[in-house]
Design a protein around this nucleic acid. Sequence first.
RNA 1: GGCCCGUUCGUCUAGGGGUUAGGACGUUAGAUUUUCAUUCUAGAAACAGGGGUUCGAUUCCCCUACGGGCUACCA
Length: 506
Amino acid sequence: MSDKKVRVRFAPSPTGGLHLGGVRTVLFNYLFAKKHKGDFVLRIEDTDQNRYVEGAEQYILDCLKWCGITPDESPVVGGQYAPYRQSERKPIYREYAERLVAQGHAYYAFDTPEELDAKRKEIPNFQYGHAHRYELCNSLNLPLQEVEALLHANTPHVIRIKMPQDDTISFNDMIRGYVSFDTNQVDDKVLLKADGMPTYHLAVVVDDYLMKITHAFRGEEWLPSAPVHLLLWEFLGWKADMPEWAHLPLILKPDGHGKLSKRDGARLGFPVYAMNWLDKKTGELTPGFRELGFLPEAFLNLLAMLGWNDGTDQEIFSLDEMIEKFSIERISKAGAKFDFEKAKWYNAEWIKRTDAESLKLKVWEILKEKGVTVTDEAYLLKVIDIVKERCVLLPDFYQQSAYFFQQPAEYDINSVKPKWTDAKTDFFNALVTVLPELDSFEPAATETRFKALAEEKGLKVGDLMLPFRIMLVGGKFGPHVFDIAALLGPSETIIRIEKALEAFTG
RNA sequence: GGCCCGUUCGUCUAGGGGUUAGGACGUUAGAUUUUCAUUCUAGAAACAGGGGUUCGAUUCCCCUACGGGCUACCA
């Protein structure tokens, strides 16, 4: 690596929600930048006016924010190399495209999309390249005057790169090592579209150069077009400044085959996007990890482990730890199938490790949404501590803790009623009178008294525990009963026993 | 079809010329928890195939197979 300051960019196209692979690319970019005390730039690649989606840019910004990743430069915070939206840089690209034409590395092409479609149908494996470019409508083939006339008449045209013949383009990918391509196999990609906007190929090279990007991370799907980019760096005379490339392995469908897509989420029942995404045109809502109840720490952690590890058995990493441990050499080459079960495990681990204070707000919101009002913060903190180890997703806090704030709306009556006896009624009536006499309502104290009373009444403790639990909780779940009772306090415990007794005996 | 990339338990992966091929998720069994979950213990489970190179290949090379990506005036 050179002594230049490390600068990386995440350059999404604002066409919809951000999916797993996108966030992982952000993450690796960010980890690398921060590891090397460099800059992380957010650049919006909105060069396709047809695919542009309102709100997508804001969504990307919100995603980064949720993840705790702050760009050093972006369309909103600006920076030395602004603007960071390619649509706002439009005039820049034409200049470089024209320069390439002037130097003979590119040419004007006047073929219409319809004509090219026809060609593709007519000629098997048609490529706009060395084999066919001299039979098509372009400045390589047409007489100079005719080209000038067409240009003068504002005839719609594109600028294409002229791929050299019989050459090999190779480079050293930071992840894949030596990679090479035969130029005869690569077609004359469009650089500048008829609307004057650059294609990705031109824009990525020009902007990476202008923004002084030193390391370029992107998905493996870009590998086949790498030779075009390499050539552009060379033709434009910037080869010495070319970033190092890292083509990341893809995230694959858990079942079947292929790249993970939005559709798979709907089909298999798990989110693919970082956050909920609402398509304003169709009204379709694509669920996100955030809304499902993932902690951002867990989300980033599980994403990082999809293709990276630190070489030890450690699997739980905070963002800071990842920055410290990250290295490109430890990124795997092969694509990874996404496993939602493991994803949930990461979240459960993170919930367990996060202290109640940090969880407080989120749990409070979840309870509020369900109509459970929390007024005592200290009490909420205690509740979180006692139930968090049985929550996998944030919304699990509702079922696990609602009964601490309100009496059970209904009881799992079938678990107690068939085995109910008058002796049990008698026991709980006695318990209600005995409980207030206790000096301490600590779990151990109530448990001792509970058991003693059972013995006095000649009943088995085991037959009384479940009914007691159901009286307090409503169902067969939750922490230890006496811990629950302790938190609830004597008066609330007694009220619940009495109320449940009516339901059990009625 | 052409080109490019890849291939260790079901999944994510560690490892690397000589290992009982390790961990995690999931799964199975047991323990603990007089509920559920947690936790703990144990078990099943993998080097795609064929050729080389080598005293010795899962590891290095080649081929095949399989998987994936690209093949737009989309990124």
